[in-house]
Nucleic acid binder design. Structure first.
Lengths: 153, 153
DNA sequence: TCTGAAACCTCTTCCAT
DNA sequence: ATGGAAGAGGTTTCAGA
């Protein structure tokens, strides 16, 4: 990939809002041709800039109305303990995001649960059962004020 | 919408992983026909369960390699101050997520920035300039361990 | 609810610019 | 690198069973 120009940026912005756009629709919006847009999208995929196309859902309608952010401290930050913890988290389907963070805690998890009772189950009998965890602190989400996947271009 | 059955669940699961699947591909994966899948998808959209299709991007490749979670406390939690803050956040393109939370802080923001210097600008000369904010605390992301948009069905 | 077929749109390549 | 044209292939939509 040579360079991202202003048309590429427009394409990325459009596709971040609506991943279902056809090359022709894209062309109309960014002021180019369908063939050109198609080539640009392929190049952006090739370059690893555009990744998957996903469908977003309403968690509440699927019985996952509760979001919780959970900070975790490990007993030891050794490479093996970290690797063990990360592999474990990867397999937990209730944990949708996991970040290694700076500060007082080692990890920040974003957990989706049905309700508080379900979260208690997921945390106490799922996550905290893991050997390497020293302690945790939960931040309960009262309301999603803003929730977008698009990043500025 | 009457009820979500097991085929609907499979459709939702597939579409959360790959929003670009055609009705035929969906049909093959969930064991149904293209026409049936097409009708089910329309019904799930109508019911507000399936929402937008979006394209995911690599933030680092677009010069937004730094994620920061920022906790905010307002001077007052009055309705007008909260509304003012939320409208302000809505307009901040660097803030991709904002949650109203329980505990010591009022809000949790997910901010994307170019680097630490850029974050300092965004925070000090963007977000914290706002009148209603009393204090903040930033959690820097060292690495994205897991980052998925799909929630379990 | 499914099958089949028609109409339509999209992807993909090629070529002249 | 771009835009137009065009064939192949896939998708939507609507009969009829």
């Amino acid at each position: 990939m040579t360079q991202i120009d202003s048309i590429d940026r427009k394409i990325i912005a459009e596709l971040q809002q609506d991943g279902g756009l056809s090359s022709q629709e894209l062309a109309d919006r960014v002021g180019s041709s369908a063939a050109s847009c198609w080539r640009r999208v392929k190049a952006l995929e090739q370059a690893g800039i555009l990744k998957q196309t996903v469908r977003l859902v309403d968690p509440a309608r699927l019985g996952r109305g509760l979001d919780v952010f959970c900070q975790i401290r490990l007993k030891s930050q050794s490479r093996t303990q970290r690797a063990a913890f990360e592999a474990f988290i990867e397999a937990q389907e209730n944990v949708v995001e996991c970040y290694s963070i700076s500060g007082d805690w080692d990890y920040l998890l974003h957990v989706v649960a049905e309700d508080v009772a379900d979260y208690e189950r997921v945390l106490m009998h799922g996550i905290l059962d893991h050997e390497v965890i020293a302690s945790s602190s939960s931040i309960f989400v009262l309301r999603r004020v803003k929730h977008q996947t698009a990043i500025p271009v």
